[in-house]
Amino acid sequence: MDALIDLTPELWTAAGETLYIVGLTLFFGGLGGLLVGLGLYLSRAGNILENRTVFTVLNVLVNFIRPIPFIIFLAAAQPLARMVVGTGIGNPAIIFTISLAASFAMGRIVEQNLLTVSPGVIDAARSVGAGPIRIIFTVLLPEALGPLILGFTFIFVALVDMSAVAGYVGGGGLGNFALLYGYRQFNPVVTWAAVLLIIVLVQLVQFLGNSLARKALRR
């Protein structure tokens, strides 16, 4: 317990870092997920930008990347991180790699949410002369907004999960804190404190997501 009190400043720093990593990856991964998901949805057979090649490539890519355990993906994607963000270690690398992995995971969720939009509504929009871009922004995304918010809430938890292994490549955050000061120092109280903070964070975000989704669905 005393150790925990001594570590309080580090704990808050770690919590701040987790928020920073998860916040940025939610933004980039979410954006990537929207693009991948829209790509999958629009290029699917019978949809407005039907394109078998695009669909197959995206589909295989998603199926290929999603099952890779994140800690292995992190190591495997290191050269790519070096190319894109200039470094293979630290927070920039972890943010890049999580965003990449999350794009594909989220892509599938976005695709599934868009598939719940009735094709008839898209017919209605086409029948009044709306083009693909307009349909995306005025029909697809608004009509699927409720489920999409829930999807983003779901992926948030996955992001917190992925950020926990950031310590392996020199990143920070609550996961790193728990490993460094709790697990390796044989101090379970410190580990539990980190776990408790993560639980509180996830609960808060889930609550926020649920209430936003309810608002979007007007239920």
Binding site: S118, V121, D123, A124, V128, T138, V139, P142, E143
Partner: peptide, 17 residues
Amino acid sequence: RLGIGMIFQQFNLLDSR
């Protein structure tokens, strides 16, 4: 299409509007 209106069996209204 601007000169041709269409109505549907399932109405196909935008639920978000």
